[in-house]
C-alpha cells in the first residue's frame, strides 16, 4: 500500500524533471566523432585519392552494397574507376572502414540520408569522394609502405626496412 503511494508520488515528481527528448529537426543531437553514418572516400594530404581499389571493402561488406572497378593511371598507381555504394542496403556496420588498408573509406557522423526516390540512394564515386583527409589528417599510405609511387623511395617508408643487399655476404 505504501509502496503504491510512493511510486505514484515519484512518478508525479517527474512532471518537474527535464524532458529527455531532443526535438530533432529543430535541435540536432550530439554525434560522437566515431559515429557510423554516411560513408565517404577520403584523399591523402597530397590531394591524391587514398583508395587503391583493393576490393577489401566490397569483400567485407555483409550486405554487398559496395561495388567498384579498379584501374591504373599512367604511373601504375591503382585507383577505382567507379565506386558505388547503395545506401538503401548499407547497414552502417563499419566493416568496410575496418577492412580498408589505406584509411580511404570512412564513416562520418551524418545520418540524414533521406531521399524521395530510392534510386537516389545509390551514391556514385563523385558523391562519395571528398577533398579532405577525413579522420586521419597526416596519413598517406604510400609514405608508410607499399610500392614506390614517387612519394618515397624503395624501403624508405615508415614501416619498412631498407631492402636487403643480395650482393653482400653480411648478415
Amino acid at each position: 500500500m505504501f509502496s503504491i503511494l510512493r511510486s505514484l508520488w515519484y512518478t508525479f515528481l517527474h512532471a518537474f524533471h527535464k524532458r529527455e527528448t531532443i526535438l530533432y529537426p529543430e535541435e540536432k543531437p550530439y554525434l560522437p566523432p566515431r559515429y557510423r553514418g554516411r560513408i565517404i572516400l577520403s584523399r591523402d594530404p597530397d590531394g591524391e585519392e587514398r583508395c587503391v581499389a583493393c576490393y577489401l571493402c566490397a569483400a567485407a561488406c555483409p550486405v554487398d552494397c559496395i561495388s567498384l572497378q579498379a584501374t591504373e593511371d599512367k604511373d601504375g598507381r591503382r585507383y577505382p574507376e567507379t565506386f558505388r555504394i547503395n545506401f538503401s542496403r548499407c547497414i552502417f556496420c563499419g566493416l568496410c572502414e575496418e577492412a580498408c588498408p589505406t584509411y580511404a573509406i570512412q564513416l562520418i557522423p551524418d545520418f540524414e540520408l533521406s531521399e524521395y526516390n530510392r534510386q537516389n540512394m545509390v551514391y556514385e564515386k563523385e558523391h562519395l569522394l571528398i577533398s579532405g583527409t577525413g579522420k586521419y589528417p597526416e596519413y598517406n599510405f604510400y609514405r608508410n609502405a607499399g610500392v614506390d609511387m614517387g612519394v618515397k623511395g624503395k624501403g624508405e617508408g615508415g614501416n619498412e626496412h631498407p631492402p636487403v643487399d643480395i650482393k653482400s655476404i653480411m648478415p
Binding site: 512518478t11 517527474h14 524533471h17 524532458r19 529527455e20 527528448t21 526535438l23
Partner: peptide
Amino acid sequence: LWQDRYGPN
C-alpha cells in the same frame, strides 16, 4: 510528461 518525454506536439 511523467515519462520525461514530449508526446504529440
